[in-house]
Amino acid sequence: MKLKLAYTRFNVTKPVLSQAILKTGVAINILEAKIGASYGEMVVDANADGRDLAKLISFLEAEGLTIVQLGEALEIDLRKCISCGACVSPCPTGAIMQLPSWEIEFDDTKCIRCGTCVGACPVRAIRLTT
């Protein structure tokens, strides 16, 4: 399950994630991290579901982090898509590309489910399924 973690200035300097791994035993893979002096945001892949996942989330929330569970899959409805490209350059990991025909191509392995493209699409052809 992919999670977006938002840190505040009260917890951004603490080793919250390593403590979470030690306490819950869940293996966590950091996909993206932006940490500043007063705030931070991370996208992680937590190798857990059900109770383990709930345990991890409640631990992180107790530490003051805001958790958003990211969708499982990104779907681009190509019947709705007008091949404009509005989702392409905003994608932070380059998971959406344009072919020489200007049609959209999506690389699921690069996608971190951040949802930037969902809002960027002017014809609402992209959604995150949960």
């Binding site: 007008i82 091949s83 404009c84 490209g85 509005a86 392409v88 905003p90 344009q98 200007w102």
Partner: peptide, 23 residues
């Protein structure tokens, strides 16, 4: 081309209008 040099960095560029439909 999808990439534009801006302040020495290669920045991704993409259209808002549809080249596919324009063609």
């Amino acid at each position: 081309s999808g990439r534009v040099n801006l302040n020495g960095r290669d920045v991704p560029a993409s259209p808002m209008s549809s080249h596919k439909h324009a063609k």
